Amino acid sequence: EPETIAHLMLGCVFSCQVWAIILGRWGKLEWIPSQDSLPADWWSTRLVPLSERRDLSMGIILVWWTIWKHRNAIVFDGARPDVALVTHLIETEGRLWWKAGLFKGPGLVC
């Protein structure tokens, strides 16, 4: 499979596993992307109350950023793909983002 941004962030098996865990924690399992999802189309079609939209947008950015950093560690540092590590990093970083005020609500459960 060619490494496109859509494939890397939503469609590859690794990303799908990460999303299944994170979206399960968010109570949004119906949002699990398909292998042919495009990032902008996938996110823009989510029906989210306005009061939650900013926090969920920040959460998605956090997931994408963590997947990207892990991909770079695999490519450049010889790391092994590790879904548990990525979800742990999302949780840890999410707490820091919440403490920094990047989440306005009570905080996403990552």
Rank of each mutant, 00 (worst) to 15 (best):
E1Y: 05
E3D: 12
E3L: 13
T4N: 12
I5V: 15
I5C: 12
A6T: 01
H7C: 14
H7R: 15
L8G: 00
L8E: 15
G11Q: 04
G11V: 07
G11E: 05
G11S: 10
F14E: 09
S15R: 06
C16T: 08
C16L: 11
Q17I: 02
V18W: 03
V18R: 00
W19H: 02
W19Q: 11
A20T: 13
A20I: 07
I21R: 15
I21W: 12
I22F: 06
L23P: 06
L23M: 02
L23R: 15
G24R: 11
G24L: 07
R25Q: 15
W26S: 12
W26I: 06
G27A: 00
G27L: 06
G27S: 11
K28Q: 14
K28I: 00
L29Y: 05
L29P: 02
L29S: 14
E30F: 04
E30M: 06
I32S: 02
P33C: 03
S34R: 11
Q35P: 03
Q35K: 14
D36E: 10
S37C: 13
S37A: 14
S37P: 02
P39Q: 12
A40D: 11
A40S: 10
D41E: 13
D41K: 07
W43P: 02
W43A: 09
W43G: 00
S44A: 07
T45C: 13
R46C: 01
R46E: 03
L47R: 10
L47C: 08
L47A: 03
V48T: 14
P49L: 01
L50Q: 13
L50W: 08
L50F: 05
S51V: 14
R53F: 12
R53H: 13
R54T: 10
L56H: 09
L56P: 01
S57V: 05
M58F: 02
M58Y: 01
M58I: 04
G59S: 09
I60V: 14
I61Q: 11
L62E: 05
L62P: 01
L62M: 04
V63G: 03
V63M: 05
T66N: 07
I67Y: 00
H70I: 06
H70M: 07
A73D: 12
A73P: 03
I74R: 04
I74A: 00
I74P: 01
V75Y: 04
V75E: 11
F76M: 01
D77W: 06
G78E: 02
A79W: 08
A79I: 03
R80L: 10
R80F: 08
P81L: 08
D82H: 11
D82E: 07
V83E: 09
V83K: 07
V83T: 13
V83M: 04
A84N: 08
A84H: 06
L85K: 11
V86F: 06
T87M: 06
T87K: 02
E91T: 15
E91A: 15
E91W: 10
E91D: 15
T92K: 11
E93A: 12
L96P: 00
W97R: 14
W97M: 12
W98K: 15
W98R: 09
W98L: 05
K99E: 08
K99Q: 12
A100S: 13
A100E: 14
G101D: 08
G101V: 09
F103L: 12
K104I: 06
K104E: 11
P106W: 01
P106Y: 03
G107E: 00
G107R: 07
G107Y: 02
L108N: 11
V109R: 06
V109H: 04
V109L: 08
C110R: 00
